[in-house]
Computed example of a mutant assay.
Amino acid sequence: MEPLKLKVSYAPFVRSKDSIESVMYNVAVALLPATLVSIYFFGWRALLVTGVSIVSSICFEWAIDKIRKKPTACLDGSALVTGQLLALNLPSGLPLWMVIMGAFVAIVIAKHLFGGLGFNIFNPALVARVFLLISFPAAMTEWYAPFSVDMQTAASPLGILKTDGLQALAGFNTLDAFYGIRPGSLGETSILALLPGAAWLLYKKYITWHIPFVFIGTTMLFTGIFYLIDPLGYASPLFHLLTGGLVLGAFFMATDMVTSPLSLRGQIIFGIGCGVLTAIIRLWGGYPEGVSFAILIMNALVPLLDRWDVSEIKAKKQPSIKAA
Rank of each mutant, 00 (worst) to 15 (best):
I207F: 04
V37L: 12
A28Y: 05
Y203H: 15
S78Q: 05
I295A: 09
V49T: 09
R68Q: 14
D150T: 11
R129W: 05
A300K: 02
I20V: 15
I297Q: 03
A139R: 03
Y227E: 01
Y206C: 04
P319E: 07
F172D: 10
A279Y: 04
I58S: 04
F131L: 02
I181S: 14
M257K: 12
I121F: 13
C74E: 14
T208H: 13
S236H: 06
L126K: 00
F42Q: 07
L195C: 06
S22W: 11
L232I: 09
T208K: 13
S320C: 12
G180A: 08
S320F: 11
L75P: 03
I229R: 09
S53E: 03
S135A: 15
L304P: 09
L88N: 08
V8C: 02
K69L: 11
V130T: 11
G197Q: 03
S9D: 13
L277S: 11
R182D: 07
L133P: 00
T189C: 12
V108L: 05
P124H: 08
S263M: 06
I272S: 07
I295N: 03
G187M: 01
L32I: 02
S236N: 11
L94A: 07
F41Y: 12
E61P: 06
I297A: 15
I281V: 14
E312R: 15
D76I: 00
A128I: 04
A139S: 12
L32K: 08
L228M: 13
G285R: 01
Y179S: 14
A170N: 12
F172T: 05
I191P: 03
G51Y: 00
G245M: 00
V55M: 12
G271Q: 04
A170Q: 13
D18G: 07
Q167M: 14
V99Q: 02
P71C: 09
S292Y: 04
Q84A: 06
A170D: 12
V130H: 00
T153Q: 13
S190M: 05
T141R: 13
I280G: 11
A193D: 06
R282Y: 03
L202W: 02
G285W: 03
I211N: 02
V55A: 15
I107S: 08
I207S: 02
L133Q: 10
E289D: 12
G51H: 01
S78C: 08
F270K: 00
K111P: 07
L6P: 03
T219G: 13
V37S: 03
L6A: 13
D65V: 00
D164G: 11
T223H: 08
D150S: 13
V149F: 11
W284R: 00
L264M: 12
A294L: 06
L166R: 10
I229P: 04
Y234I: 06
V99P: 01
A63L: 15
S56A: 14
A63V: 15
C59M: 12
L75R: 08
V247L: 05
T219L: 09
F42P: 05
